[in-house]
Amino acid sequence: MPKDAPVDPRGPRFSAWITSAILAVVLLTGSWRLLAAQTLLFGMCAFISLKLNPWGHVYRYALQPRLRPRTDREEAAPLRFAQGVGFVFALVGTVGYASGLTALGVVATSAALVAALLNAAFGLCLGCEAFLLLRRHVPSLARTQSTPSQ
């Protein structure tokens, strides 16, 4: 996985608000196509780069210049892991809705929505916390994060 630069923590929270809205619309409409689009977005951010997130671009170019500058940054690896977790839940939800297993779609989408809302409203990124917990207990994750950045 390529290494993304550290990010302003307000950007992922902004993206989580938009993701929450998208997931809420999916729950209200049962649109597997909209959920498939969100699944694709999660996948691109998790497996390619966080820079592919269009909501991140909106934040960086439209909102961030209007906000007070911040120097604190978050590592990208936990955020990418969280996007991967979102990808799994959204993929399960998409398969559920598309195949007629609506209950599966609702449960998976609801779980993703809860995680997105926790991040948006409280700054609690469940996927990030899971990554940090795993990094403490899986030596290979700790090794990849301890290498100095260039």
Rank of each mutant, 00 (worst) to 15 (best):
V25Q: 04
R13C: 05
Q83M: 02
L23V: 06
Q64R: 15
E74P: 02
L41K: 09
T19W: 03
G105K: 06
T147W: 07
L113P: 08
P148A: 05
Q83I: 00
L104E: 04
G100R: 04
S49T: 14
G43H: 08
H137P: 03
A90W: 03
K3M: 10
F87V: 13
V85S: 02
Q38T: 03
L28K: 05
Y59P: 05
L28D: 00
M44N: 08
F47T: 00
A16L: 03
R136A: 14
N119T: 14
G56T: 13
A103D: 13
P12T: 04
R136D: 15
V138W: 14
V106G: 02
A82K: 04
S140H: 11
L133D: 12
L126G: 01
V7G: 01
R143L: 09
A130W: 10
A16T: 01
A130D: 02
L27I: 05
Y61H: 14
V25S: 01
C45S: 06
R13A: 10
F87A: 08
M1V: 07
T102G: 06
A37R: 14
N119K: 11
V26Y: 01
D8W: 01
P148V: 13
A16D: 00
P69K: 13
F81H: 02
A98V: 09
S140Q: 12
P54I: 12
Q150W: 11
A77S: 07
A90T: 02
Q83N: 00
L118Y: 07
G43S: 04
R70T: 10
P69W: 13
Y61G: 09
F131M: 08
S99L: 11
F89E: 04
A120F: 13
Q64M: 15
G86H: 00
W17Q: 05
V88W: 11
L23W: 04
G96E: 01
K51H: 13
E129V: 05
S99N: 08
V92Q: 09
D4K: 00
S149A: 15
A21Y: 07
G84H: 11
Y61K: 14
G84S: 12
P65E: 04
T39M: 15
F42H: 12
C45T: 11
L52Y: 12
G96S: 10
L27T: 00
V95A: 13
R13F: 11
D72S: 11
A98K: 13
F131V: 06
F87E: 05
S149H: 12
G127E: 10
V7Y: 00
M1H: 13
V95E: 06
L124F: 11
C45P: 09
T39Q: 12
V88Y: 08
A82S: 15
L104C: 04
A5N: 11
A116K: 07
A121Y: 03
C128W: 02
R68Q: 12
A120K: 15
L132Y: 10
G86K: 00
R66F: 06
P148M: 11
S31M: 03
Q150A: 10
L132E: 11
S99K: 02
I18R: 12
V95T: 09
F89M: 14
L104A: 07
P54T: 08
A142E: 15
W32D: 04
F122H: 01
G84L: 05
T19V: 11
R143A: 09
L126H: 02
A76W: 00
R33N: 08
D72T: 03
K51P: 13
Q64F: 09
I48K: 11
P148S: 14
T144F: 10
V95R: 05
L133A: 15
C45Y: 07
T144K: 15
